[in-house]
């Protein structure tokens, strides 16, 4: 039993070990290779890292529950772009003229609502048709992206509201607004998955759908709720990012789904569903951002960063498999 516990512990803590390794590696390597004179483990640099991981991180929390549930959502990048457009464009609508800064909560609400509705559409199709979530959201990814282009052609949609920018750039207790959102979402989703009946049922459905059905759990509504949550979070992520930047390109958010899934898988969530942890996903998000920042710190360009992240993802999953094999007596299949 002792050996089993060790490997369990290793598995649970692997992502944190990896983060520590990254920190040490980039600090040491940075001394010799860095193009800047600043240390890697600089406080400002680390705070910035959290802020930068927020857009991916917020969506990753939603992706974790969808994946634990045994589904996947590839349309988050497109939902992210649509929510961003709704957010920025609605502030210029004549209907809201004269609201002053009160337009901000209205625009936020509209953006979040569009995210929830788009997620609900995904969820409803998966529920009612029984088509695999991979296919449904693959279609949604293309379709929603089409909506983005229909809205404003190839043109970016821009609107800067300085109150909003001030809010987004604010720091409270040293942490940026975006970081606070990421932490709040992580905590809320963690609570949802560990403490509520919905969360536990989501685990059960992903782990053994037949057993869940036999136990009278209504699988469809649970899946739909989770798709609505990830839609909401994709929109929230857009709010956090575009409140500050104020301009959205129709291509924004592309490949976000893959970054998000990478972070979730790195955090140890099973692709087949049933197992995974919100806290570890948080670790996965931080690990990826560290890697990006660290490699940039060493002067590597984006293409190198992508190559390295890809290799590390495969290496991590390979290691995970090795840790899961109990020893020589294990059945070979």
């Amino acid at each position: 039993m002792q050996a089993g516990q060790l490997s369990k512990y290793l598995k649970g803590g692997a992502i944190w070990g990896f983060i520590v390794f990254e920190l040490i590696f980039f600090s040491v390597a940075g001394e010799f290779l860095s193009v800047s004179d600043k240390a890697f483990m600089d406080a400002d640099n680390m705070l910035l890292l959290f802020k930068q991981s927020a857009p991916i991180g917020i969506i990753a929390m939603g992706m974790t529950i969808v994946m634990i549930n045994g589904n996947i959502d590839l349309s988050v990048g497109a939902i992210y772009a649509i929510a961003a457009i709704v957010l920025l464009d609605s502030m210029t609508w004549p209907a809201f003229e004269g609201l002053g800064d009160m337009v901000i909560p209205v625009a936020w609400a509209l953006a979040l609502l569009s995210g929830v509705v788009l997620g609900a559409i995904n969820g409803l199709i998966v529920w009612k048709t029984g088509v695999d979530a991979f296919i449904v959201t693959l279609g949604a990814m293309l379709g929603y992206r089409g909506l983005v282009f229909m809205y404003n052609g190839e043109q970016p949609t821009s609107h800067l509201n300085w109150t909003l920018v001030d809010f987004a750039e604010a720091q409270f207790l040293g942490l940026h607004t975006a970081t606070w959102f990421l932490l709040a979402v992580t905590l809320a989703i963690w609570f949802l998955m560990t403490r509520t009946v919905h969360g536990r049922n989501a685990y059960a459905i992903g782990n053994n759908r037949e057993a869940a059905v036999n136990a009278g759990i209504r699988v469809g509504p649970h899946m739909m709720i989770n798709f609505m949550i990830i839609g909401f979070l994709a929109a929230l992520s857009a709010i956090v990012f575009y409140s500050e930047s104020g301009s959205v390109n129709p291509n924004d958010g592309e490949l976000y789904e893959l970054w998000v899934i990478t972070a979730v898988v790195l955090g140890g969530t099973k692709l087949t569903g049933g197992a995974g942890s919100i806290i570890s996903t948080f670790g996965g998000v931080v690990a990826i951002q560290l890697l990006r920042k660290g490699l940039a710190h060493l002067g590597a360009d984006t293409s190198t960063v992508n190559l390295v992240i890809g290799l590390i993802l495969i290496a991590v999953l390979f290691l995970d498999r090795q840790l899961n094999v109990k020893g020589k007596e294990e059945l070979k299949v």
Partner: peptide, 21 residues
């Protein structure tokens, strides 16, 4: 049931009360 209908990542308690926690 003869065939096991359990969620093996969950605890014993959660399995016993599956669907009616």
């Amino acid at each position: 049931h003869q065939e096991l209908s359990l969620a093996d990542e969950l605890s014993v308690a959660e399995n016993i009360y599956l669907g009616e926690l």
